[in-house]
Design a protein around this nucleic acid. Structure first.
Lengths: 337, 337
DNA sequence: CTGAAAGCGCTTACAG
DNA sequence: CTGAAAGCGCTTACAG
């Protein structure tokens, strides 16, 4: 049960290990006679030779690994659904290049353990999904010209990918305005913290402002990723003297909780209160009633992010920011059909 | 920006690289004077030394990597929610041992590409979530005594983890029987295929049989992972001359679709038709009405699977099967409260 | 308790 | 077009 090495292949093909390596790795740069090539390939096949990853990494100074970092802490369900779709896109690109994905969850307040992956040279690139970077770490990444693509946050000299959160939210709220609503509340997806751009909330405000509809601070309530938080936030809104007639919720998952609060109160959706969510999670159209929402192009974002990273790993391309369009999906939670 | 190596540490601490390696790796086996230890540790710290992973892998013949394989193909939403919870559990174990998780999605009909990870010695162990193993691959894994833990399928000489699917389903259906239902339908989570034990469906049948309630073949309809499939399956049931008064659905996600079909038909839940799902996905209690279901202990399964794998990697422990309990969560889709 | 040296299995200038 | 040889940065018997 001995492992087969490149020496075995070389012996069988009657060439040196050098030639085996050339045939396997750089068909373009070095000219190998077609006959030798075939002989080597045949030997590889017959022996079932797979190069030892560690030896390759050590000699070539490339790991063919990409670190994927995401937040561990909160029960960030929609982020997680998003995560798997993004991974699907990322993998479709990485598979073509023989890159492997290493998963690393981080706590919000952790020691950035993923940096060790980089220091150990276990990865050639980094994908950060919804994790903020402190300036110490980002400086280090920039200084080393280490390939990075971020989702959800944006940094000056690092590549990033995002969806049109601001525009998507603005269009969602304009949809409600077009339906005649003037008392429109907002439940955010996440609590506000310094440095958080919260583009969805800004889209909400800007839509109201552009249409000259006065904003009511009481009608903006914080959610925190979970349906539970949406339920609580909606109860706050339902306790107000003047009820909103529509609610824009920063994520579908939070909207599920908010809608439950409305049902329990005996009010009807969209008759008494209309709803628009954000994300288009797979269950959104099976909410009661089906939830109008803004679709995030998660798989596409993964694909583009993967390409961005590979261009940087392979060709040293410059850092680039890409923003992908979102799309309003109208269902019956905003207007009876 | 030169990488710091163990030579640098050795020089700084005034010892050999051997000693550096001993201090870092086998505190128990070799006795190093406390003073030397401290000197080495200080040098490591001051230099920010992180051992090169490739060199370590090559020299030690251990990769500290674990492959996590899951099915790519179908839009297996509840599997995916399950997947992330399982990963949470797995990582909590692997983090303690410095093991890294490599993600690999496979197509149902693919070439088992993950086997190359093993051949390249990039991983020391394998976790298979809901992917069946053909006998060629399983024989190879067994022959090499390669550490493997499977979820969802079980093989003679490989470790596996599972939940009480049969018992959970049986208890769910007994819950409906206890409520007085006799016309109980079942929508499965997945289409039947050869070799699929489908324990949830068996639990359904066995509950009926033990209570002497006749089974009606028309009342068993196949779902296929998605809410869409549940919607379609429910429409089939609603087209029958004699309607069931309760439905046991093999997964919550499928149940969401089925419940939507019932609402559209203008029937009430649980008044006209009661529902019980399976999985307890995070949105289950925000279904309308909140969905009675059977909870899968996903995180716990991940933890136990991780421990099973590590015992095998580290101590060569024998293959073991573990089954974890499920729990009925009663909400109002089965009985008005 | 500590060090010199071989070896892990590749890649890649450098010669020829 | 092909090969001999150095080197990647660790670990680990083996001596002492």
């Amino acid at each position: 049960m001995r492992k087969v090495t490149s020496s075995d292949v070389a012996a069988r093909a009657g060439v040196s290990r050098t030639t085996v390596s050339y045939v396997l790795n750089r068909s373009e740069r070095v000219n190998i006679s077609e006959e030798t090539r075939q002989r080597v390939l045949a030997a590889v096949d017959e022996l079932g030779y797979i190069p030892n990853a560690a030896a390759q990494m050590l000699a070539s100074q490339r790991s063919n690994g990409v670190g994927l970092v995401y937040p561990r802490s909160h029960p960030h369900l929609s982020t997680h659904i998003f995560l798997l779709s993004a991974i699907e896109g990322l993998k479709s690109v990485f598979d073509r290049y023989g890159m492997h994905l290493l998963l690393d969850a981080v706590d919000n307040n952790s020691e950035d353990a993923y940096i060790d992956l980089l220091a150990a040279q276990r990865i050639d690139g980094l994908i950060l999904i919804d994790v903020p970077l402190n300036s110490f770490v980002s400086q280090r990444l920039i200084r080393n010209a280490f390939p990075v693509v971020t989702f959800g946050y944006q940094y000056p000299q690092l590549s990033s990918i995002d969806a049109e959160n601001w525009l998507g939210a603005k269009i969602a709220v304009e949809h409600l305005l077009d339906l005649g609503h003037r008392r429109i509340a907002c439940i955010t997806n996440s609590p506000h913290f310094p440095g958080d751009p919260n583009l969805r909330l800004r889209g909400y405000h800007d839509a109201l402002q552009q249409r000259g509809v006065p904003a009511n601070p009481d009608w903006v309530v914080e959610g925190c990723y979970t349906p539970e938080s949406g339920y609580t936030a909606m109860q706050t809104l339902l306790g107000l003297a003047e009820l909103p007639t529509a609610v824009f919720v920063g994520s579908d998952v939070v909207a599920f909780g908010a809608m439950t609060a409305v049902h329990e109160r005996g009010l009807s959706i969209p008759g008494d209160i209309a709803f628009v969510g954000f994300d288009d999670v797979p269950l959104a159209r099976y909410a009661v009633p089906p939830l109008t929402t803004v679709r995030m192009p998660a798989v596409e974002m993964g694909i583009r992010a993967g390409m961005l990273l590979m261009e940087r790993v392979l060709d040293g391309a410059a850092p680039t920011h890409i923003t992908l369009p979102t799309e309003l999906i109208v269902r019956s939670s905003s207007c009876a059909t």
